[in-house]
């Protein structure tokens, strides 16, 4: 059983890890914007509701949230589950959890845009929606790149929690290969995969940061 064969088996799980990673980012970022807007809403009930949601999502383990999302249809609504539901539950669980973190980062980013920007836009006659998308959003994006990079790197590693609801990703595969060979090597190989992937993520985010450095 050579090194290459270990790598090959782990690559099988890497696809699943990438799948969770990309779709979680795809869903959680827009959702995070909505969370941030709801969190800043002047409509008190919505604001309060969002505050409670974010508090729970950030204050309880992601693993528990995944289990709740996966089993809720059965334990709350009595709907029998299928194995196909796992992937949806994983994506919903990850996306909502990460949206809570992104939401708070985005909120800080939005609030850091100086009030003068809003006033300049208001005097020029921009609507609130135009002001948000044309003026506030691009400046917010620049401000949130470093903290978002942190979260994205954490997400790469958090994907391994998908196995809480039996969605087998790379780390689970690595553990299975380790068990099959009673050898610790596959775990290190998996670690190497995570590390290389995160170097790529950090590089990409660094490029984005550089691209946005044309303004302050």
């Amino acid at each position: 059983m050579g090194f290459m064969s270990i790598v090959q088996q782990i690559i099988g799980g890497f696809g699943t890890t990438l799948f969770i990673f990309f779709f979680t980012l795809l869903f959680s970022m827009p959702l995070g914007i909505l969370f941030a807007l709801a969190r800043m809403s002047k409509f008190k009930p919505l604001n309060l509701f969002m505050q409670v949601c974010i508090s729970i999502l950030r204050g309880t383990p992601l693993m528990l949230q995944l289990i709740v999302v996966f089993f809720m249809p059965y334990y709350v609504f009595g709907i029998k589950l299928s194995t196909g539901w796992r992937v949806y539950a994983a994506l919903i669980g990850f996306s909502i959890n990460y949206a809570a973190y992104f939401g708070e980062i985005f909120r800080a980013g939005i609030q850091a845009v100086p009030v003068g920007q809003h006033e300049a836009a208001e005097v020029l006659g921009f609507t609130k929606t135009q002001t948000f998308f044309k003026i506030v959003f691009p400046q917010m994006v620049k401000r949130v790149v470093p903290p978002v990079t942190n979260e994205v790197i954490t997400l790469v590693k958090d994907t391994s929690m998908a196995f809480a609801i039996a969605y087998a990703e790379m780390f689970t595969m690595a553990k299975q290969v380790a068990a099959q060979q009673s050898n610790i090597m596959p775990l290190f190989v998996a670690g190497l995969f995570y590390y290389i992937f995160n170097i790529i993520v950090a590089w990409v985010m660094g490029r984005i940061e550089k691209k946005l450095s044309y303004f302050e």
Partner: peptide, 24 residues
């Protein structure tokens, strides 16, 4: 704006429920 946010949130929840039903 407020209404827009509320609508979007509601939409996402509905989508979530639909997926839930579809999956099960």
């Amino acid at each position: 704006m407020k209404k827009m946010i509320a609508l979007l949130l509601a939409g996402i929840m509905c989508a979530g429920l639909l997926t839930a039903c579809g999956g099960s």
